[in-house]
Amino acid sequence: MSSRTTEDFREAVRRHPFLEGLDPAFLDAMVRLGVERRFRVDEHLAREGAPANVLYILLDGKVALEVGAADHPALTVQTVGAGEVLGWSWLVAPYRWRFDARAVKPVHAVEIEGGALRRLLSEHPDWGYQFLLRFLPVLAERLENTRIQLLDIHAR
């Protein structure tokens, strides 16, 4: 489903914690780039190694981020959901997903095309800076959480 027409949808995007409070002109530009998407349970939002050309802004649902190998069963290392964002690989060359992302609850999201977003951020460096100030804490928090998981604090 693709719809950029409903004001309710746009309002939901504007109220998203990741976007709330951004420069209104920047926010409007982001909203114009957004496409409403829905995913069923077990449907993939991303596949490891595939071209990564979208940022998902999650409005509802839950997504499992999975890593695996041919000789190792998939392991869910994190879930993300409403109020969070999914995907940073669109921002960094070579623009390929570094993990699988699978819906574990029905997902309602905004999909923003990565190339268009990169162009927008390049053309408006002040918006680009605002965006990175929002995005880096998300990455930093996930890195810190991964470090804690590596400690395996519940092991003997």
């Binding site: 499992a64 998939a74 392991l75 869910t76 994190q78 959901g81 959480n145 998981q149």
Partner: peptide, 23 residues
């Protein structure tokens, strides 16, 4: 309820407990 890691048969949350605090 959240776990630090899970297989594909787990449909609950995955992540350290602090990831659930914003909710």
């Amino acid at each position: 309820v959240t776990v630090d890691a899970a297989g594909r048969d787990w449909y609950g949350d995955v992540g350290v407990v602090t990831t659930r605090l914003p909710d």
